[in-house]
């Protein structure tokens, strides 16, 4: 029996002089989202809460903020940091009061305090009556670096919990309807992520859905202030890139 000679990249479609991979030619109108560039910084505050206080507290705070948004019929979802920029003082005050009443305000502030010190334009500064200028943890930048490195792996535990919390927050506002039986609804399973198959299914759904939470109108408008742009620029100010001018190697 003769073997057919396998053609290199045979599953790609030739369009002009380009070979398009299956996902690009079978699914039209796909706009790629940027997890590490946009989603990670936008939801970083949720990861900071989980990092400091654990999953249960993070989920509880997310639920309470979601409840506030629903009850106050706020225009802001309070999910991405960028969208919090346009929240007015009255609404911030109302949120502070709501969280304080549930004994959650101090927990939230403790998690994001040093972020606000190092990134003074961060809208989360409005959670505090007075914007702080002194770090509580002098090693915060180093720990932030470690956390962001961890979060860079989108399917890692930290990142999945962060994305899940964002979706949970959206659900708590009554804005996310999940059909019964779908993995996306089984948040509870994530406490075991990634050690069980069910948790991995749920985690995969979270990863697949998180982009829709972060994608907002005007995201590509260069004239509009966006937290990810500020975050990455500020990182270069605080931690300049160094060049190894005299590098020698045995390559």
């Amino acid at each position: 029996m003769s073997k057919k000679k396998s053609k290199v990249l045979s599953d790609h479609k030739k369009v002009g002089k380009k070979l398009l991979p299956p996902l690009m030619h079978q699914v039209s109108g796909v706009t790629p989202s940027h997890y590490d560039r946009d989603t990670l910084p936008e939801l970083l505050w949720l990861a900071l809460i989980e990092n400091m206080h654990g999953l249960r507290v993070a989920a509880a705070i997310a639920e309470e903020i979601g409840t506030f948004v629903k009850e106050s019929e706020s225009n802001c979802r309070f999910i991405t940091i960028t969208e919090m920029k346009n929240v007015d003082k009255i609404e911030w005050s109302a949120l502070r009061t709501h969280l304080s009443g549930k004994e959650m305000l101090d927990l939230l502030i403790s998690a994001i305090h040093d972020l606000v010190v190092l990134y003074p334009e961060c809208p989360l500064r409005n959670l505090m009556k007075q914007v702080p200028v002194k770090l509580r943890n002098d090693n915060f930048l180093a720990s932030l670096e470690v956390l962001v490195a961890d979060l860079t792996y989108k399917r890692g535990r930290r990142a999945v919990l962060m994305q899940a919390n964002a979706l949970y927050l959206l659900g708590s506002q009554g804005k996310l309807f999940i059909k019964k039986g779908l993995s996306l609804g089984n948040f509870e399973a994530l406490k075991d992520y990634p050690d069980t198959e069910e948790s991995r299914k749920v985690g995969a759904s979270m990863c697949a859905s998180s982009a829709m939470v972060v994608t907002l109108p005007g995201n590509d408008d260069l004239n509009v202030w966006r937290w990810p742009k500020y975050f990455w620029k500020r990182n270069l100010e605080q931690l300049p890139i160094t060049f190894d001018v005299n590098k020698r190697s045995s390559k």
Partner: peptide, 16 residues
């Protein structure tokens, strides 16, 4: 650094 998004940084290594 992850805070640099692990961006590519130029270098001119000299090889043996």
């Amino acid at each position: 650094s992850a805070l640099h998004r692990y961006t590519f940084v130029a270098e001119m290594p000299e090889f043996t």
